[in-house]
Amino acid sequence: MPASIVAQMAISGALMGLVYALIAYGFQLTYATSKSINFGQGELVMVSAFFSLTLLDLGLSYWLVLPAGLLFGAALGLVVERAAVRLALEQKSEGWILLTIILGLFFFSAAENIWGRDDRPFPTPIPSESFHVFGVDVTPLELSVAVGVLAVMGLIELLKRKTLLGKAFEAVSVDRDAGELMGISAKRTVMLSYALSGTVAALAGILVSPITTVGPTMASALVLKAFSVAVVAGLDSGFGVVLVGMFLGALETLASFYVGSGWREAPGLVLLILALAVRPTGVFGKAAIRKV
């Protein structure tokens, strides 16, 4: 087995792993401000992808559909916050866990009713013929995933560090009450974090759809991997989810090639069990796993 083929698969896998990282990053954004996450995040990925596909079917250009899809994702994020999270947080209860799951189920059946159960292709102007670089073949499509994920995560991280709004975001994450005393509305900060989380979910959907096709169940596996990535990397490091996401993606491709395609899901599971065994009281473990 030539080393270049191993590298080839590892890189393709790692690029897909960036999608896990992006979805996991969406968990981090809301966890930071409110110690809550949307368990129906996969449905936001899927519904945003269907919405964007509908706009494409109407004849809009991909480059118009992209921002429209992201805005739609932000709006969905706000819906989740308003409908499933806000009241629970005000009452200091864990009700958001159940409510976000139920809202996800609702989005799922709504999507089935509106768009049907079939998987549909997602047209994109980005070519899928591979080209040769540093001894491996990559497709512009795979590359677009990497560029999109890293650009958007980089932009959000930059805003968080350089703008006063970003510092306020951090302040509320550190100490909600102290942030309020500075005149920072914790409520609006949580809303912002859910809007951003919805935006990155939509981006994940739009980036991955040309590769995986669009269907009601398109995101269920993705979001489980994202959970694993978030648990392993922890819920506070954007850099961490990128590394773990790429690592997991690479591992999966290699496992399915060497051991058999049925073993694709094994690395995620093993990584998750290892992380929980080594760090049983990880941030995530405390907040969610124990309670669910």
Partner: peptide, 28 residues
């Protein structure tokens, strides 16, 4: 507040800037 409650993961100047949050521009 009691116990000071400074934002430990932000630098001193950022803490001060946040004190004026209500009347400063949000981005630049």
């Amino acid at each position: 507040p009691e116990g000071r409650k400074v934002f430990g993961t932000l630098c001193v100047e950022d803490n001060l800037l946040l004190g004026a949050y209500g009347r400063l521009p949000r981005f630049f």
